[in-house]
C-alpha cells in the first residue's frame, strides 16, 4: 500500500438541530494511488463523509489529517487544492459558459498565470477526451460529457485525490461507463487516488478496497472479495451484491462444483467452461 494521504481519527459529526450523529466515531485511512469505494444505503452517512473530507462540513469532534496537516477552518483552502470533488448532478456544477471556461474556473480562482492556465486546461480536457469540445456550450453536452468536464476541472487543479460523490448515479448506462472508464484510465496512469461514493456495486467490485457505511459508522472494511462474501449481511444493509457473485452462489446451491468467488462475469464464465469440458 502507498503512503497515507488522508486519515480520519474518531470523527463525529452532527447536523444542526439533529440529536443523532450523522457520522459516529469514524476512523480510517486513504492511501496514495488506491481506488477506495465507500458504499452504504441512502442516509448511511457516506455523502456527509465526503463533505467532511473537503471541508464543506467540519467535524464536531475527532481529527481529519490531509497530507500531514490537520483539516481546520484555517487549512481548508489548502485541503481543497489537494482534494477535488465531482458531485452527483451534472447540471449543478457547470459554472462556465463554455467547456474551456468551466475548466479554467478553478484555476482562475487560484490565480494561476494565463499561459500556464491555458496549457493546463487543454491538458486536462485531453485526459478526459473532451478537448474537441473546448468552445462548446454546456447544454450541448450529454450528462456523461458534463461529468467528464467536471473531472477535467478537478484535474486541472492537480489534486492528490478525487472524490466522486455518486457522480454517475444520474447518468444513463453509457454515460456511466464513459465516466468510470475515464477515471480508471487516469488512475492507471498513476495520476490519482480515487474515493468513489456509490450505490453501484458493480463499480465497487472494481475498487481496491471497500468501506461499507451504516448508521454513520464504518460497518465493514475490506477487499471486494471479502466484502461481497458477506452476501446476506449486505442485503440487510439495503445494498446488493454484484450479479456474478449472486449467480455463482445460486449455481453452487444447485450442486455445481464451482470453487472461486467470482467478482467478474469473465471469471465465472471461465470456470463454467472448465467444468463443462470435464463433464
Amino acid at each position: 500500500m502507498g503512503k497515507k494521504l488522508v486519515s480520519l481519527d474518531h470523527v463525529v459529526f452532527n447536523y444542526e438541530g439533529s440529536d443523532s450523529h450523522a457520522i459516529n466515531d469514524v476512523s480510517f485511512d486513504i492511501y496514495e494511488g488506491e481506488w477506495l469505494a465507500i458504499v452504504g444505503h441512502n442516509g448511511s452517512g457516506k455523502s456527509t463523509l465526503a463533505k467532511l473530507l473537503n471541508g464543506l462540513h467540519f467535524a464536531s469532534s475527532g481529527v481529519i489529517t490531509i497530507n500531514g496537516s490537520e483539516l481546520t477552518q484555517a487549512t481548508v483552502w489548502e485541503a481543497r487544492r489537494k482534494i477535488g470533488m465531482v458531485f452527483q448532478n451534472p447540471d449543478n456544477q457547470f459554472v462556465g459558459t463554455t467547456v474551456e471556461d468551466d475548466v479554467a474556473f478553478g484555476l482562475e480562482n487560484n490565480g494561476i498565470q494565463q499561459d500556464i492556465m491555458a496549457e493546463r486546461v487543454k491538458r486536462a480536457l485531453m485526459k478526459v477526451k473532451m478537448d474537441a469540445f473546448l468552445d462548446q456550450e454546456p447544454h450541448h453536452l450529454s450528462g456523461g460529457q458534463k461529468q467528464r468536464v467536471a473531472i477535467a476541472g478537478v484535474l486541472a487543479l492537480q489534486p492528490d485525490i478525487i472524490i466522486l460523490d455518486e457522480a454517475t448515479s444520474m447518468l444513463d448506462p453509457r454515460g456511466r461507463e464513459e465516466v468510470l472508464e475515464t477515471v480508471r484510465e487516469l488512475k492507471e496512469e498513476n495520476v490519482l487516488t480515487v474515493v468513489s461514493i456509490t450505490h453501484d456495486l458493480e463499480e465497487a467490485a472494481k475498487a481496491d478496497r471497500i468501506i461499507v457505511m451504516n448508521k454513520g459508522q464504518v460497518h465493514r472494511e475490506g477487499s471486494p472479495i471479502e466484502i461481497f462474501r458477506l452476501e446476506d449481511e449486505l442485503i440487510e444493509l439495503g445494498l446488493d451484491i454484484p450479479f456474478s457473485v449472486k449467480l455463482s452462489k445460486a449455481l453452487q446451491k444447485t450442486g455445481l462444483d464451482l470453487k472461486n468467488d467470482h467478482l467478474t462475469e469473465e471469471e465465472l464464465v471461465k470456470e463454467l467452461c472448465e467444468l463443462h469440458s470435464k463433464m
Binding site: 444505503h41 441512502n42 455518486e166 448515479s169 444520474m170 450505490h199 442485503i235 439495503g238 446488493d240
Partner: peptide, 8 residues
C-alpha cells in the same frame, strides 16, 4: 428509482 440505493 434513479439515485436510490438497491433496497429503495
Amino acid at each position: 428509482t434513479a439515485g436510490l440505493d438497491p433496497r429503495g
